[in-house]
Design a protein around this nucleic acid. Structure first.
Lengths: 157, 157
DNA sequence: GAGAGAGATGTTATAACATAACATTCCTTA
DNA sequence: TAAGGAATGTTATGTTATAACATCTCTCTC
């Protein structure tokens, strides 16, 4: 959970937004895919594939890795989640409407991941790419450190 | 191998630079660590831990994963190599002298990895971090795409 | 409403990446 | 030359991810 917001609403908003996007694109947000997305949205921290597998499995029915990885692939393709390379984890995408690069700020203490779509960062990367004659297809930007809240907490301890 | 340069000289330069840096810091570039570094410098492409294990093993002596991972950890700590998160691979660091963030441009075709230390990118990230009150500890920037040379090659094919 | 075909999911097995825990060796230095 | 720390060796296992093939399900067409 996060910086006091109504997280239930947050989840609901994410899911209905996903429904809408998939409907518009003519792709299917199947029950499995939707369940995976819902689990990912349970928090604003990165969740790992095998944690999802555990959570989606029960005594009588174990979900197998390929099932979850396929759902994750779909959600990634549709831009509904982000993969965090440095954590082998996944988080919901804040702004699935518009294709955008993910610039992720990851707190090492509370695990909170926040996303931004700063044009300045993008431009700086594009400038350097242009200088090299490099044709950019994807940008991975992950900043590790301490979020404001955890700095406060540390200061008062 | 890379964009026609004298790669042997490149390797040698990297190794002697590493020798010097380690001597200055009072840390030991042991034979194993040096061998791993040398292998990594065989090309400007990312190499994976298990490829290193394979290359360093022979019929009579197999190198075990912890051995290689420990050498990699040392080289990372000393800033002599970079880890590429999106590839689970490693490359030699161009400028091991000065601590610097790695901004890596990775060609999906030839695998070439080039490094830059652009201040503009760093500043843009710091600006956004400041806006969020985020205390940055590490920056991971990996740009995937096609290098100039591979674009040319594609255009003439 | 039977069959074809695509898309999604299930299943088995294994590949690929990484580390914990403990034993041994090697290197320095007092 | 013994003690202690650093490095490496060894065994085992934990974690992350995918290949390959079987089955199911939905929709569309005839």
């Amino acid at each position: 959970m996060d910086h006091e917001h109504n997280h239930d609403a947050c989840i609901e908003q994410a899911l209905s937004s996903a429904d809408e996007i998939c409907a518009r694109r003519g792709v299917r947000l199947t029950p499995m895919r939707r369940k995976v997305l819902e689990r990912i949205w349970q928090s604003h921290e990165a969740i790992k594939a095998y944690d999802l597998i555990g959570q989606l499995s029960s005594a009588d029915r174990t979900v197998k890795p390929p099932t979850v990885y396929r759902a994750l692939d779909f959600l990634l393709e549709q831009g509904l989640i982000h993969r965090i390379e440095s954590l082998n984890g996944f988080v919901g995408c804040d702004r699935p409407q518009k294709a955008h690069q993910s610039q992720l700020f990851i707190c090492r203490d509370c695990g909170h991941v926040s996303e931004c779509g700063d044009e300045g960062i993008r431009r700086a990367l594009d400038r350097e790419a242009a200088r090299q004659g490099f044709h950019t297809e994807a940008r991975i930007v992950e900043v590790r450190g301490l979020c404001a809240r955890c700095q406060d907490r540390a200061a008062h301890a």
